[in-house]
Design a binder for these strands. Sequence first.
DNA 1: ATGCTAACGCAGCGATGAGTGCGATAATTT
DNA 2: AAATTATCGCACTCATCGCTGCGTTAGCAT
Lengths: 184, 184
Amino acid sequence: MTEAVQTRPGGRSARVRAAVHRAVGDLLATESPEALTIPAVAARAGVHPTTVYRRWGSVAQLLADVATSRFSGDIVVPDSGTLAGDLERWMSDVATDLTDPDVLALMRATIGSGPEGGCACTVDRHDQLRAIIDRERARGGKVPDLERAIDTLLGPLYYRAIFSDQPASSAWARGLVATLLATM
Amino acid sequence: MTEAVQTRPGGRSARVRAAVHRAVGDLLATESPEALTIPAVAARAGVHPTTVYRRWGSVAQLLADVATSRFSGDIVVPDSGTLAGDLERWMSDVATDLTDPDVLALMRATIGSGPEGGCACTVDRHDQLRAIIDRERARGGKVPDLERAIDTLLGPLYYRAIFSDQPASSAWARGLVATLLATM
DNA sequence: ATGCTAACGCAGCGATGAGTGCGATAATTT
DNA sequence: AAATTATCGCACTCATCGCTGCGTTAGCAT
């Protein structure tokens, strides 16, 4: 008795999904956050509102889906041979990503949509950081605690992006790596 | 020709303002963030929707007003005599404040309402931190850079509150002070 | 090639949020 | 105490968001 809930991710469904995701990004980039309503997204995506209502249900779930897919697999974990090199390269990439105003708008909206919105933006970053640290440990090097790395590296970076009007340059972000490794 | 835009903050106006502010907090604490609409706030506050429309105009402006007033003057800047003591006491208070789920809900909603929502939650924190550092400088002690203090202290704290599911205990928050003063 | 069915589009309904003109109330001034 | 006017409540209109049957299209399997 195979109760396999069949899904069909190919062809039109994927096209619709992509169009809706792009529409969410476009609307957040141009309009006010309150304007992000399901009919508006559907119209922008060239899709019928009914489709969005049925597949995602609410704006919050839609945003969570868009955010997790946008913030996953977008940055490749570097392998420079040393922990410092890996971290600096990775932090530089993450900081550069946070330079984009559209990315910030998506993050803000996702955070505002529910209690778990913030996690959706950073789970993959945590996984990447863990991968970098694990690889250094496999090399036999001394590694910092993961939580401490998150606090020291991602904390200031995302704080500047969301709570401060300070720009977060990639050079400054690389500097955070030095602070972490110095106090290890 | 005095074009003074007269305002009258006494009596009923203040009462309405307080009721609306409390209603925003209550709704964010109980309902979903999308349920925070002006008619809902007005109903909860026992005030006519027209009043809210005229005084605040939009949910975003209302949230910004509530957030700035909620996150201003709520924590008294301590004066223990030493920089470390001041910072530890202050960080402990800030961390404790962030323990309240209702506070987090308000912060999330404010962030999601617009590009400057995050700043509304932290301007007063920055002022307080500046005051602490300035006082230590007046004492003649060695002081860290303000920006560096913001990055090291508030960064990890607010990151945990918004982006991570890690609890931010006040003891852990006090530990951040040690890291800052060690790398000064 | 054909059947099955998940996924989409269409038409339309009910509910409600956004906004306006006008009179009433109450805070502030003279 | 009386006048002034900022502020609020009421009644009402308009726009549109959320949602539901129903028929149609197009993946996926045999």
